[in-house]
Amino acid sequence: MSKEEFCNMISISEPGPGDGGNTGSWRVLRPVLDTTKCIPAKTGKPSCFNCWLYCPDGVVTKTIPPTIDYTYCKGCGICAEECPSGAITMVDEASFTKEEK
């Protein structure tokens, strides 16, 4: 007898976020943006956006002010390091309450 259906079972993935889970849980330090120092936030004009450009995970938005997706931010600190106005500080993740997380 011939088989009617040959199940084409292969490893074929569909795009979706969060393959690695909520990678925000990897974070030890959380980047916190001070909008009084952030250049686009302060001036209200599109400018700088180094935090967005250099983020390896694409979790910073190119908006005024930039926002950070803490669900997936791994807390590397590149944004803080590359911010020309020192607007981002890395804060101990343990200091945040459950709700804030």
Partner: peptide, 17 residues
């Protein structure tokens, strides 16, 4: 219809999106 073929596959089953 972008698909990623022959990706790393785990020992166990896993939910898709």
């Amino acid at each position: 219809a972008p698909r990623n073929f022959n990706t790393v596959t785990l020992p166990d089953v896993r939910p898709d999106i």
